[in-house]
Structures are given as structure tokens and as C-alpha cells.
Design a protein around this nucleic acid. Structure first.
Length: 357
DNA sequence: CTGGGGATGGGGCCC
DNA sequence: GGGGCCCCATCCCCA
């Protein structure tokens, strides 16, 4: 496959991280999903399709495909408009002052209003699983849309305005760790003790945690604990299967962990615009925003918009007098860890004074 | 040099 | 068990 390294200097980056341009970009992105996108998730479908109109016909589920195979999985058959219907539009840089949806998003901002005017969401690259578009033209509510936020619902379901990002509670921070009991639920429970859904909900409300008997880490769900013990915990005892990567020498205790790792080698999520590849679909989606200029995350203070929530969060720090990272020596605060590191390594003036004394 | 934004990756959690 | 989203962290680049 002919590969052209981009002119930008990425010599400092690991090879797998350098952006590449494929001269023969396949027309269809790979379908990495083992199931078609569920547009009804988070109410997206309801927001884009009138109840009375015919809704999406169930898409036949593609057969599960292993990412361990070298051959790329084929895309599922999709009935869709002509490929030429989705012409790539040049990037639209959204000036903060022109944003047509504020943050918090208000119910009156119907999705059709904001995304048609703000983001060119018609390009198939917006969805790696739908080669030629979406079942409903121009109505894809991608993960980058404000409604993709788990705390949001489509307009007709919105009961509460979106709380500013910086003010939203962190759910797991309120967990009651005092209720932890050693080794609770860590051994395989007999069938009759399997908690019901209501029990689990109640336990979540009460903050019951499931603790790993090997390393002590606790999780809010038994599923989380199971994944930890299966994928991550190296402190566990007993004979364990090992799965080694065929691309490198890493060894994992589960096939799932290995599959996840192998994606960092195969980089199956490929940008249809520039050909750069990513290990996970959501990384690709974030990357595609760099092409489209879509910036769904706006600062509530200055209306500056960002393509990435993390970058907005970092930006919000600049509005705060007391920033997240503080120097232990001079108590100066910084918005980013990197700035604090630079400060301390580059020479905190107070540190210099202390050394002189 | 400092501060900030852009881009990206990993691990955890929930559905 | 898989997928998606979240938070956090990191690195690079630029003003």
C-alpha cells in the first residue's frame, strides 16, 4: 500500500502515531462494530424521526467479526442514498460568536436547527460504520452532538436545562466508600444470590462497591469488577491463561484485553478524508472534527468553542482564579499539569530561594 | 519563557 | 462481553 508521510514533522512521534496519507483510500470505511448503530440510543432516533413516520427498519445484524483477523471486516450492507449525495464540504470554522446553540443547550434549540447550520454532518466520515451516509439524510446525531451527552435527551424529552459542564456532579465521587465490605461480591455468588436489577439499582444508590480481593480496587458494578479481574488485575492468584500479541511481546490475561491492545497495532478506524488511522472509533470521530471544524463544546463564560470536551475543561480552568494544579512550594496554581511541571522543573522562584537558604 | 489551545491516547464506567 | 462515552493525562505548537 503506497504511503506518503505528511510534510508535517512528526519525527518525535512513534511511527504508529504519525499521520499518514493513503493514496488508495478505500471507498468504504471498515465496519468495526459487531452491530449496527442503534440510533434509538439516547433517544437520538426519536429526535430525528417523527413517531408517525416510518422509522428505521431493523438492520440485519452482521455476523460478529474478530478484530484478530488480518483481513478487514467488510461493511454491512446498508440501503442508502447514492454516495455522491454526501459530498465533502470544506471545513467550516465556527466562530464562537456565531454559535447558534449556547451552552447549556436549551430545549428550544432543535437539533435540526443547530447542526445544519453549525456542523457539516453529512459526510460519511462522520460515521465509520455507515459507508455512504445514514438512513435519514442529514439527521445523524453523532456522538459529537450535544445530545450525545449522557445527561441530555432530545428536545421533547428535556426536562432540565443542561448544567454547565464545570458544575455537573461527578457521580462516582459521591460514592459512599464507608459501606465497603472486604471481598464483598468478589467470589462467584451462588445463583440464588444474584441480585436483581432493582437490588443493583438500590446498591448503586447506596454506593455499594465491589472490591477486588487481589488488589483492593473497588468498582461500582459487579461487571466493572469482573472486567478488572479479567483484563487488568495482575495481582490475582491462580493459573491464568495468557494471550500474547503477535505484533509485539505484550502478554494479556484475557482475549478481550488482547483484542483491545491489538487495535493499537492494526488501527482499524481510518479517516476517510486524510487516511489517518486510529485504534478506536471515538478517536476517529474526534479527529474528523478537525476536518469539519465542528466544535460542539462551548465555554459558558466566553462562548469560545472546542471540538473536544477535555480541551474545554482545560480552558475553563483559565477562567478560574484558583486553578486545579498548585505548586507545593509557592502555592501558585496552574490550569494544566504540564504547566505546573514546567513551573517546578523550570525553576519555581520560591524553590530557588529555599535552595539558597 | 509562559500560558493556552489542538490533538491524541489510556483506563474506567455505564448501557 | 461489546460498545460508547467519560475523565484524565500528555505532547506539540503557537502567540
Amino acid at each position: 500500500m503506497p504511503v506518503t508521510v505528511m510534510a508535517k514533522n512528526y519525527s518525535h512521534c512513534p511511527l504508529k502515531k504519525r499521520p499518514i496519507v493513503f493514496d488508495d483510500i478505500p471507498d468504504e470505511p471498515e465496519n468495526l462494530s459487531t452491530k449496527p448503530e442503534d440510533l434509538s440510543r439516547s433517544g437520538r432516533l426519536a429526535s430525528i424521526s417523527p413517531p408517525s413516520s416510518p422509522t428505521l427498519s431493523p438492520t440485519p445484524s452482521p455476523s460478529p467479526q474478530s478484530t484478530l483477523t488480518d483481513s478487514p471486516p467488510s461493511s454491512p450492507p446498508m440501503s442508502s442514498p447514492s454516495p455522491t449525495h454526501f459530498m465533502y464540504q470544506p471545513p467550516i470554522k465556527v466562530e464562537p460568536s456565531r454559535l447558534e446553540y449556547p451552552v447549556p443547550i436549551s430545549p428550544e434549540y432543535a437539533p435540526q436547527t443547530w447542526h445544519r447550520s453549525v456542523a457539516p454532518m453529512y459526510h460519511p466520515a462522520y460515521h465509520p460504520y455507515m459507508p455512504y451516509g445514514y438512513p435519514h439524510e442529514g439527521i445523524y446525531m453523532g456522538p459529537s452532538s450535544p445530545y450525545s451527552d449522557s445527561s441530555l435527551s432530545p428536545p421533547h424529552q428535556m426536562q432540565q436545562p443542561l448544567q454547565p459542564l464545570a458544575l455537573r456532579p461527578t457521580v462516582y465521587s459521591s460514592m459512599d466508600h464507608s459501606s465497603l465490605s472486604p471481598n464483598s461480591s468478589t467470589t462467584s455468588p451462588p445463583p440464588q444470590t444474584v441480585p436483581s436489577a432493582e437490588d443493583l439499582s438500590e446498591k448503586r444508590r447506596q454506593g455499594v462497591r465491589h472490591q477486588c480481593p487481589d488488589c483492593g480496587k473497588s468498582y461500582s458494578t459487579f461487571s466493572g469488577l469482573s472486567k478488572h479481574r479479567q483484563f487488568h488485575c495482575a495481582a490475582g492468584e491462580g493459573p491464568k491463561k495468557s494471550f500474547s500479541c503477535k505484533y509485539c511481546e505484550k502478554i494479556y490475561v484475557s482475549l478481550g484485553a488482547l483484542k483491545m491492545h491489538i487495535r493499537t497495532h492494526t488501527l482499524p478506524c481510518k479517516c476517510t478524508i486524510c487516511g489517518k488511522a486510529f485504534s478506536r472509533p471515538w478517536l476517529l470521530q474526534g479527529h474528523i472534527r478537525t476536518h469539519t471544524g465542528e466544535k460542539p463544546f462551548s465555554c459558558t463564560y466566553c462562548n469560545r468553542a472546542f471540538a473536544d470536551r477535555s480541551n474545554l475543561r482545560a480552558h475553563l480552568q483559565t477562567h478560574s482564579d484558583v486553578k486545579k494544579y498548585s505548586c507545593a512550594t509557592c502555592s501558585k496554581t496552574f490550569s494544566r499539569m504540564s504547566l505546573l511541571t514546567k513551573h517546578t522543573e523550570g525553576g519555581c522562584t520560591m524553590l530557588h530561594l529555599e535552595k539558597m537558604c
